[in-house]
Design a binder for these strands. Structure first.
Lengths: 205, 205
DNA sequence: TTATTTTTTGAACAGTGTTCATTTTTTGAA
DNA sequence: TTCAAAAAATGAACACTGTTCAAAAAATAA
């Protein structure tokens, strides 16, 4: 192996080290409470070094948001073995909520925080591939449902968006403290209770 | 009128002046780009004065979020004249989305930004009255629908939460740039297209 | 007029993201 | 092994943030 190759690998390794340190601090104290200095301290490098490997804070947040989508992919993996599309669609929403509740800080970064989208805007990156791909998986499942005779009279893309919005709405209200504020009869299970109402409805469609 | 009375009125007026200045800047440049110094400059007072009238930035954000709910109340006003609860429920969601799209910065503050809820936590304020009241209006309408024989087999509170989540999900995905990322066939109308799919579904229930 | 109270001020503090001249380390030809 | 050139790492410095609080200014009322 050449020196150039090794250097490239070392550069990649340090980039991952920074991301790993950043993620650790995010989970420990939250995204907003984590500073570049914290991250540099965590991995025993100086602030300057962090800026050698990342253009700015948004770049770190974007890369971390991509890692979040990989983790969501892990949650989704088992879904693809489910042949019945309606069954898969139901489990997909359930899995989505489960991911959000078990990875609140990551979910926040992926779907609520502005930084990752700002990074995409201010860089030559073509699009939000992570979001496009995930929404595509939902759309494909809804399409299979329609091909089997479900959702008569509905349109694929808007219907898929509606379903995504519903699960995202529940998760984001929870994560941004709005369910806590409303004091439900059963606050600990309101997300899944709400999702069950949706299941009852689509079972008829 | 006594001096004390006048002073109390003047204090209230200055508080409102600060909020007015803050709102102006929020709409002009966004919440995150507005600083206490900006607000002080805008109304020709010093930073120190702002802190005499508000405990901290969260307190300003909370009061402004309350103003947002008053404005949402204005949008909702005409709904109460609609006698048919199903008709009212449909229009309510439509109005909610309209408000969010016409007042994105305010909607963000009311339902996404953490600060107003943090203020409630760290003060002797009992609860999120604004949210409780608004959700109560939805729940009441859903209840009337159920009393008229709709939504058979569903539970009031989780169903209402599901409906709220759906419209909030659409609005927050839009406001936090996630619809832009996903490049829909018809991005300009996707919120209302999505909402129409929901309408088609509940028409059968 | 003047002592007291109320209101306003803005410098100061500890923190933030970011930059970049300087130092340290690594490299590979002599 | 030596040592100039290249690469990597550094941290002080800059302009900004929210927040505090002693001091100054203004308003009050005796």
């Amino acid at each position: 192996m050449s020196t150039a190759e090794r250097k490239a690998r070392e550069k990649e390794a340090l980039k991952l080290l920074i991301l790993k340190g950043a993620k650790k601090l995010f989970l420990e104290r939250g995204i907003e409470q984590t500073t570049i200095r914290n991250i540099a301290d965590e991995i025993d490098y100086s602030v300057g070094t962090v800026y050698v490997y990342f253009k700015d804070k948004n770049a770190i947040l974007h890369d971390l948001h991509s890692i979040g989508f990989e983790e969501l992919g892990g949650y989704f993996k088992e879904l693809f073995s489910i042949k019945d599309p309606m069954e898969r669609l139901k489990k997909m929403g359930f899995t989505y909520i489960k991911f959000a509740l078990e990875n609140t800080e990551m979910y926040d970064l992926m779907f609520i925080v502005k930084a990752p989208m700002e990074f995409i805007e201010t860089s030559e990156k073509e699009a939000w591939n992570e979001g496009v791909g995930t929404f595509g998986a939902l759309k494909k499942t809804v399409e299979e449902c329609m091909n089997k005779g479900h959702f008569k009279g509905n349109s694929l893309e808007p219907l898929s968006f509606m379903i995504w919005s519903m699960v995202h709405g529940m998760c984001s209200l929870e994560i941004r403290q709005r369910t806590k504020g409303v004091k439900f009869s059963n606050p600990d299970t309101i997300l899944f209770d709400g999702y069950n109402e949706y299941l009852k409805i689509i079972e008829k469609l």
